[in-house]
Measured scan of single mutants.
Amino acid sequence: MSIQHFRVALIPFFAAFCLPVFAHPETLVKVKDAEDQLGARVGYIELDLNSGKILESFRPEERFPMMSTFKVLLCGAVLSRVDAGQEQLGRRIHYSQNDLVEYSPVTEKHLTDGMTVRELCSAAITMSDNTAANLLLTTIGGPKELTAFLHNMGDHVTRLDRWEPELNEAIPNDERDTTMPAAMATTLRKLLTGELLTLASRQQLIDWMEADKVAGPLLRSALPAGWFIADKSGAGERGSRGIIAALGPDGKPSRIVVIYTTGSQATMDERNRQIAEIGASLIKHW
């Protein structure tokens, strides 16, 4: 067993022997301040990774656009098919120029040779490549099948209805392509620590998230040296922004954090800054 596999296998073990965790309302004060600064709703939840206990939450059962955070769930569904012998990570998928959609920095470079399922998941999570996500959605049967996968996990809230990039439209009061912070946090925890996926697939999923290259201005910008984070960000229309993450000190994750916002007129930089400040408060009061 590799060191990384050992780390993920012992996530519940280490967490069980940690000192009790206590909620700190100071972080919620910052979440509410972010709402004021952005002029928009902000949803927040913080779960203990081992027990699933909610440590703090704000608007945990209000719907927010998922945006690209759905790509972690998508690759979880792909990995479940791999575990069941219905898919192979090494299978190569070929596609054409007509398949390319807006923001496809990886797939646009491989029109000639195609990409493997493993490479597509890596591109979808680490670079948020939209064509990679659409190609992977095709392998599982489309958005409705991802929703069905989530329902089978016990998540009857999260739903995907459309493809990239239309799913980022974020129309107010439109339930399409949305989740709730509580539902997303619980589902992410199941994917990373539950028995739904094999140990190898859980490790692969967290490795992809740990290698995320496009979430630097968010929670990662607030992390002290030595902290662990595996995350996936999302951005959408109407001032929408979000991030889902597993993080913790001492090089291992111990909490799940989900943050979503929508309806702001603020710039992307300002949305990023507010999420980073929430992260800084979380870490300060850990």
Rank of each mutant, 00 (worst) to 15 (best):
L282V: 13
L136S: 01
A123Y: 02
S104K: 01
L199G: 13
E164N: 03
L111R: 08
A211K: 15
E270S: 12
G226Y: 07
R273G: 11
S122E: 14
M115F: 04
V106Y: 08
T158K: 02
T147W: 05
L100M: 14
S122A: 13
Y103N: 07
D155Q: 00
I45C: 14
T267Y: 08
E166G: 12
D250A: 14
F149H: 08
S104W: 01
D161M: 05
E102W: 08
R91K: 12
K232V: 01
S57G: 11
L160R: 00
I283L: 09
N98L: 15
N134A: 01
A230E: 01
S201K: 07
H285Y: 11
K284V: 10
G154Y: 05
L137P: 02
A266C: 14
E35C: 02
H94L: 12
E175G: 09
T138F: 11
K53P: 05
T139A: 14
T187I: 09
V101T: 10
I283P: 02
E195D: 14
D33R: 14
I256W: 03
M67K: 03
L111V: 14
E210L: 09
E102G: 10
V157K: 11
E195Y: 09
D36H: 14
L38N: 07
A222W: 07
N130H: 00
S233L: 02
T131Y: 05
E102S: 15
A183R: 10
G141Q: 06
L28F: 08
K32T: 11
A185L: 00
L167C: 14
A211D: 15
D99M: 10
G234I: 02
R91M: 06
E145S: 13
S51Q: 09
T69P: 05
E195C: 09
A245M: 04
I45R: 04
L49D: 05
L111G: 07
T193F: 13
H94C: 08
G114A: 05
I140V: 14
K71Q: 00
Q203K: 11
P105M: 06
K53V: 15
G263I: 04
P143L: 06
E210D: 09
E169A: 14
G90T: 14
F58C: 07
R59D: 00
T131V: 06
T112D: 14
K71R: 01
H110T: 06
E166D: 13
S233F: 01
L74D: 02
A230M: 07
G76C: 07
M153Y: 08
R189T: 10
E62S: 08
S233N: 00
T131E: 05
L73C: 08
P253H: 10
L196A: 13
A182V: 14
V82G: 06
H24D: 10
H94E: 11
I171H: 15
A211I: 08
I244L: 11
L167E: 02
A123R: 01
R176N: 08
N173A: 13
D177Y: 04
G142P: 00
Q203Y: 09
L197V: 06
R92C: 07
A215R: 05
R220D: 00
K190H: 15
R63L: 09
H24V: 14
G141A: 06
V157P: 03
D207V: 11
A148I: 15
H156S: 13
L218D: 04
R241P: 05
Q265K: 15
Q97N: 12
I244A: 08
L135W: 01
L197C: 05
L218P: 03
G242Q: 02
G154I: 03
G154M: 05
D36G: 15
L223W: 03
E195R: 13
H151W: 13
T261F: 13
R255Q: 05
E35P: 00
T116V: 06
I243H: 04
K190S: 15
W286R: 03
T27L: 08
L136C: 04
I256H: 01
G85F: 08
A266S: 13
K190W: 11
T139N: 12
G239D: 00
L74K: 01
A34T: 09
V82N: 07
G279Y: 05
S264G: 12
P224T: 06
P249L: 07
L223D: 02
S233T: 12
Q97S: 14
R118S: 15
L100W: 08
L100E: 03
G141D: 08
L79P: 01
A183S: 14
L73T: 08
D83W: 01
Y44R: 01
